[in-house]
Design a protein around this nucleic acid. Sequence first.
DNA 1: GTCTATAGACTGATAGAC
DNA 2: GTCTATCAGTCTATAGAC
Lengths: 204, 204
Amino acid sequence: MEKDTNTEVKIKDAARKLFHKKGYAGTKTRDIAEEAGINLAMLNYYYRSKERLFQQIMEESITKIFFSIQCVLNDTASSISEKIDKMVSVYIDILSENPNLPIFILGEIQANPENITKKIGLSEDLILKTSLYKQLKAHVKEKGLENLNVLHIPINLLSMTIFPFVAKPILNSVSGMNESDFKQFVNERKTLVPMWVKSMLKID
Amino acid sequence: MEKDTNTEVKIKDAARKLFHKKGYAGTKTRDIAEEAGINLAMLNYYYRSKERLFQQIMEESITKIFFSIQCVLNDTASSISEKIDKMVSVYIDILSENPNLPIFILGEIQANPENITKKIGLSEDLILKTSLYKQLKAHVKEKGLENLNVLHIPINLLSMTIFPFVAKPILNSVSGMNESDFKQFVNERKTLVPMWVKSMLKID
DNA sequence: GTCTATAGACTGATAGAC
DNA sequence: GTCTATCAGTCTATAGAC
């Protein structure tokens, strides 16, 4: 067991912060060392190389954004309505604490599609095989919405939940929002987004 | 007048492609030269520096994604409904031809918020002072939706329109979509997204 | 305008002292 | 484990021939 401010942890925390903000190519190992308050040589002592350090950060990031909600999507005990509420709430909490996470992952995938999508297990299990997806398929049939491609629904849910965070700096500029305004705006969406999505499904 | 495949244009086309995909830090001048089929020295002959070339690409990109729809948003002759239809349609066409544009701009802003937001004129004119925004303010009052912060509406419109493009590589992996499936999926949204947003506003 | 060759600065990584 | 010093490779940019 190590104390929670030891060198290894400090390096990873600094790396996460800088990789998330600047991406792999935009982050220099010297910047990570400076941010962590340690020597450049320590980075290679603990993590062998910039590439290996990046892989660790990327794996943790993928886990956080893709697998955090899997238990919600696959809870066979909960209804569609409950899953929608929970999903939006969980995501908004995650993104509030990791605002740079979505652009980081999407940017790295765009720059290097083969590496990222292959390395991580992005299979059809993530959406098509979830309990939520099966419930949605049954629901649209029951409600006479057969013409609706069900995939639009989770996409809308994720769109309206994630997009305000990726557009946050622009929102600040074009609407004069400050940090506190943004917090309130996003908090309103915890109830609004589920309401809108349920309306698309004729729930309630 | 120059022929449309001259060196200067070839360099800019190559630079746009690579900057959009890899970002500023991830793009090397040698890669731009190779992609353009010209010599590295030519890049500096025509554009002085990587930084200046990037600024030109960035300005064009900002114009394309922010100012292309300003005429739609400020058309005093059209209704809210017509503006929504047009906005989604125009954006989907732009993004279909420039799929890497949103992540490029959002990524550069995240990496360097001061530079980008300040350099470009991201004032309140872009949304708060548009004809659409005024129409929306009047509409929610008329429909008894005063409790709704109007800003949620354009955010939802942009969310549901742009997000499928930024998540395209993930969508391919998790849903088995190919290029043709994606085209159809996005095309469906040209009618679905306006329908959903109008429903939020109790239009129709 | 276009090329080759190279200068000059930066970056990732390591050797070796402590 | 931590530091300083430095190597080897890469990157942007330019000088100079044609």
